[in-house]
C-alpha cells in the first residue's frame, strides 16, 4: 500500500514536471520562432526608416506582427501552469 502511495506521488510529481517542461517549450520555441521572423523584418525596417523617417510607424507595426506567435506560446504556457 505504501509503495502504491509513493508511486502515485512520483507520478503526480512527474506530471507537474512535464507540465512545466511543456510550458517552457511552448514559450521558448515560440520565442525563437518570433525572433527568426522578426530578424529579417527588423533589419529591413531599420533600413527603410533610415531612408525615410515617415515610415517608422508602419514598419514598427510590421516588425511586431510576429510577436503574436510568442503570445500564443505564452497563453499556452500559462494555461498549462495554472
Amino acid at each position: 500500500m505504501a509503495e502504491l502511495d509513493v508511486a502515485v506521488q512520483v507520478a503526480e510529481a512527474s506530471q507537474l514536471g512535464m507540465k512545466a517542461l511543456g510550458a517552457g517549450l511552448a514559450v521558448g520555441l515560440t520565442g525563437i520562432g518570433t525572433g527568426l521572423a522578426e530578424m529579417s523584418i527588423g533589419s529591413a525596417a531599420v533600413g527603410a526608416t533610415a531612408e525615410n523617417k515617415d515610415v517608422f510607424g508602419l514598419v514598427l507595426l510590421l516588425t511586431v506582427i510576429p510577436e503574436t506567435i510568442v503570445i500564443f506560446g505564452l497563453v499556452v504556457g500559462l494555461l498549462l501552469l495554472f
Partner: peptide, 8 residues
C-alpha cells in the same frame, strides 16, 4: 488573443 499580452 493578442490582448493576452496585457497579462503575459
Amino acid at each position: 488573443l493578442s490582448f493576452a499580452r496585457l497579462v503575459g
